[in-house]
Structures are given as C-alpha cells and as structure tokens.
Amino acid sequence: MLFSYIKGIFKGVGTLFTGMGVTTSYFFRPWTKVTQKYPENRKELKMVEAFKGEVTMPHNANNEHSCTGCGICEINCPNGSIELVTMFLVNEDGKKKKAIDKHIYHLGMCSMCGLCVKTCPSNALAFGNEFEHAVFDRTKLTKVLNKEGSTLKKGVE
C-alpha cells in the first residue's frame, strides 16, 4: 500500500512535468506563434477567391452588367435581402423590355447562403471578397449593386 502510494506520487508528478514540458517548449519557440497582426497586415491579407464576403454585381469596363431583372435571386433569397426595382426599357426595335432600375441588397440581412449567385441564370451576381463591413449606421448596409448609369451587357437575354 505504501509502495503504491509512493508510486502514485511519482507517476502523478511525472505527468505534471510532461504537461509543463509542452507549454515550456512553446514558450521557448517563438516562431510557432500564429497571431496575425490584423490592421498592420492589411496589405498582405488576401482573402481566398471563394470567400463569401458580400454579394456583388460585376461590371465590365463599359459599365455594363448582365442582370436582366428576372427576379430569380429575389425569389430564392431566404431572408429577403434582395429587392429588385425594375423598369421597362424600349429598345431599338421599339419593343418593351424589362430591365433593372435598382438591384437593392441588404447586407445586414444576408446570410451568405449563395443561392442568389448559384441560381442566377445570367451569372450577373458574384461574391466579393470584402470583409470589413463594420459601419456605424445600419442603413449603410443597404447597397445598390448596379452602378450609376450602368446598362445591360450586349447579348445577355
């Protein structure tokens, strides 16, 4: 009994020392640090391509997008974070055609499920990599995705 008592003490103290060994070894290995200094490393900080930061509408150099205003994204959004304001344009042939006036996106309600991007028939939407969304005013989270004066890309139906 006395023997097992003493053995228990030595074994217990031994396990304590192994634990202390782990923490001490990290203490003396400063290169194992994983901290990223965030605002300083902003320049090097690159999000991966697939990162879902916000929904954007890519525009090409001529300020053209490919959103036809079909409204599928609006239907598919589970949170109601997309609202479309559509209008009718008259094209050269004199035909009336539906187009977007404003593609309104409520970032504050978005849960980044990706259904709008996936279901868009004309690939008008994409995810952006921006992740610094903090604002002081909640209304600033409501964005209009199509740029001022943008038009529909040629050949997109």
Partner: peptide, 27 residues
C-alpha cells in the same frame, strides 16, 4: 477552417450542400 474557406467560401458555416449535390466544385 482555411481549407473550408478555400473550397466553400465559408469558414464556420459553409452552406456547401444543396439538394442534389454541392454548390461548387472542390478547390
């Protein structure tokens, strides 16, 4: 989480599945 982010775009909550398959292909 980095591996997840690269493929699915999300770190904690990925929303990578969809009925019938996956949202996009592997990285």
């Amino acid at each position: 989480l980095d591996i997840f982010e690269e493929t699915t775009g999300g770190r904690l909550i990925q929303s990578y599945n969809t009925p019938g398959g996956l949202m996009n292909d592997l990285h």
